[in-house]
């Protein structure tokens, strides 16, 4: 009986870890898509009022900004997941 509860707990913890991971991934991918496909391409006309060095903000996002955001996203994810690993006790030895 006791063993069953323990197994069930481990199961739900594993599921909780995975669900938390998937949530972080989804949020990150929304940002990923908004800066590149959004600001860089589809929403560019909306941003055309904001001028940046001889052109507009959309052009800057397409050629510079999205790359910088991608970098921030990957480091954020690595930091957040390594923390999550410890919270759920699933980190490597």
């Amino acid at each position: 009986m006791a063993e069953q509860t323990k197994a069930a707990k481990a199961d739900s913890d594993g599921a909780g870890y995975w669900a938390a991971n998937v949530r972080i991934i989804l949020v990150s991918l929304v940002i990923w898509a908004v800066v590149s496909f959004g600001f860089g391409i589809l929403l560019r006309p909306m941003l055309s009022g904001i001028s940046v060095g001889g052109t507009d903000l959309g052009f800057w996002f397409a050629q510079q900004g999205s790359i910088l955001v991608f970098l921030a996203l990957i480091f954020f994810y690595a930091w957040r997941m390594n923390k999550l690993d410890r919270e759920y006790g699933v980190e490597e030895d």
Partner: peptide, 8 residues
């Protein structure tokens, strides 16, 4: 941007 997919 592909590196974001790769990392995540």
């Amino acid at each position: 941007g592909g590196y974001v997919l790769l990392a995540l």
